[in-house]
């Protein structure tokens, strides 16, 4: 089996060389939160790029503007993120050339699922959340697992602190386990969505070492994408 491996040639053994089993994957960390409203959607991602205990960059955006109405947030194995977003951008351009129109958020969502499932047996190791306005101008959030399972939601958290953030959103956006009558629940405004998203990141940065530095927030409305930035703790 290992007919060409260095271990077959003891005379040539190199002292001190580490023989590692190559792993094509690496977790580069990062978290995403997306919250859909009636006529807007907010998507936020932190800007820390790390592996293990070292931080490569403190200012790496993980939000990819796919069209004026669609933003993709992608974390996980950064090289897979780069390849996947690159491929999706190419295919969106092909769509634009053949159909003479920009892909709708729903179409991008479906395509992303297919592109990811194409690598079913060697998956893109990524946690994707797609946010945008749908055909009716309503806010839409789609979340994925690494092999392309796609689900539409109104709010979702993903990435290394996804499990930490999702219950917070359940409570604050989904009003789960809140024993208040429906008419007393505060309505989901744009500002409230941004505030909740910001707060979740501040909390995540406290507990998740892969989330921090700063958070980029994209607010998508029919008028375009507004970008905001919030500093997080940098340790």
């Amino acid at each position: 089996m290992n007919c060409l491996g260095v271990e077959q040639f003891p005379d040539y053994k190199v002292p001190g060389v580490q023989h590692v089993d190559f792993s094509p994957y690496e977790s580069n960390g990062g978290s995403i939160v997306a919250i859909a409203g009636e006529d807007f959607v907010v998507i936020a991602a932190d800007t820390r790029l790390s592996s293990g205990y070292s931080i490569h960059s403190r200012d790496q955006s993980k939000l990819f503007k796919m069209s004026p109405k669609t933003v993709l947030g992608s974390t996980g194995c950064w090289c897979d993120t780069l390849s996947l977003t690159g491929l999706v951008k190419v295919r969106m351009q092909m769509y634009e050339h053949t159909h003479m129109k920009t892909m709708s958020t729903d179409a991008v969502a479906q395509m992303l699922s297919i592109v990811m499932y194409n690598r079913r047996f060697f998956p893109y190791y990524v946690s994707n959340i797609l946010a945008g306005l749908d055909k009716d101008g309503k806010g839409a959030v789609y979340s994925y697992d690494p092999i392309g399972h796609c689900e539409r939601a109104t709010y979702r958290a993903g990435g290394t602190a996804g499990a930490l953030l999702q219950p917070v959103l359940d409570n604050q956006i989904g009003y789960k386990n809140q024993n208040l009558p429906a008419d007393q629940l505060p309505p989901l405004t744009k500002e409230r969505a941004v505030a909740v998203a910001s707060d979740t990141f501040i909390s995540a940065a406290e507990r998740d070492i892969y989330t921090g530095d700063s958070v980029l927030i994209n607010i998508i409305t029919k008028d375009g994408v507004e970008e905001r930035k919030l500093q997080l703790r940098k340790d």
């Binding site: 960059s57 790496q60 950064w78 090289c79």
Partner: peptide
């Protein structure tokens, strides 16, 4: 910086190897 997996990023300072721990 580009690593063996194709992971890439730009920054005002980049380093590889031990430089990542010491120089960065």
């Amino acid at each position: 910086n580009v690593d063996m997996r194709g992971r890439a990023y730009n920054d005002y300072v980049v380093a590889t190897g031990f430089g990542r721990h010491l120089a960065l």
